[in-house]
Computed example of a mutant assay.
Amino acid sequence: MRNLLTVCLGNYCRSPVAQIALARRGGTAVTVRSAGLIGKWQGQPANPSMINAARRLGLDLTSHRAEQITLEALDWADEVLAMDTAVLDTLRAICGEANEHKLGLYLPGRDVPDPMGQGDEVFNDCAVLIEAGTALHIGRGHP
Rank of each mutant, 00 (worst) to 15 (best):
P143S: 13
S49L: 15
R24I: 00
N124R: 08
C8V: 09
A21N: 03
A18P: 06
C8D: 08
V17H: 03
R2P: 02
D125V: 01
L136K: 08
V17C: 04
D114S: 09
E100L: 07
L71E: 14
D125S: 13
R14S: 05
V17Y: 01
V112W: 06
L136R: 12
G119C: 08
R140E: 14
K102A: 04
A93F: 00
G27S: 05
I38C: 03
D125C: 02
E97A: 14
I51T: 10
A23F: 00
N124C: 10
L71Q: 15
E97F: 07
F123W: 10
I38T: 12
F123E: 06
G109W: 06
R24P: 02
N11G: 13
G27R: 02
A29N: 13
D89A: 15
A135S: 14
C8F: 09
H142P: 00
G109P: 07
T31R: 15
D125W: 05
R92W: 12
G141E: 09
R33W: 14
L105A: 06
R33I: 05
A29L: 12
T28W: 02
H64A: 10
L105N: 08
P113H: 01
Y12G: 05
E131M: 03
A77D: 07
D84F: 03
P45S: 12
A132S: 13
L57I: 01
H101N: 13
L136F: 02
G109M: 08
L81Y: 03
N124M: 11
H137S: 02
L136Y: 03
H142C: 10
D60V: 11
D60C: 10
A82G: 07
R110M: 14
L37V: 07
H101I: 10
R24Q: 13
A53H: 05
T134A: 04
G119T: 12
N52Q: 15
S63Q: 15
R110K: 15
N99I: 04
L88M: 07
M1P: 14
I94G: 15
A53K: 05
G133K: 04
D125Y: 00
P115H: 03
L88W: 04
L71R: 15
N124G: 08
G43N: 02
H64K: 07
V80K: 01
I130T: 08
P108R: 11
D84N: 12
L4P: 10
Q42M: 03
V17A: 03
L136S: 04
V17G: 00
S63Y: 00
L59I: 04
R33F: 11
T31G: 10
G141I: 10
R65K: 14
D120M: 13
N124A: 13
D114A: 07
A82Q: 05
E67G: 07
T85D: 09
R33D: 10
A29P: 00
W41L: 12
R65E: 08
P115F: 01
A35R: 05
R14G: 04
C8N: 09
D89K: 10
D114N: 11
E67M: 14
N99T: 11
L9D: 06
G43I: 02
T70K: 11
I69G: 01
Y106A: 08
P48F: 06
P48R: 11
V122Y: 08
A98Q: 11
T134D: 06
R65D: 10
Y12S: 12
E67C: 11
W76F: 05
A23S: 15
A127V: 12
Q19V: 05
Q19I: 02
H142Q: 13
H137Y: 01
L5D: 03
T6D: 07
L5T: 03
P48A: 09
G36C: 04
Q42T: 15
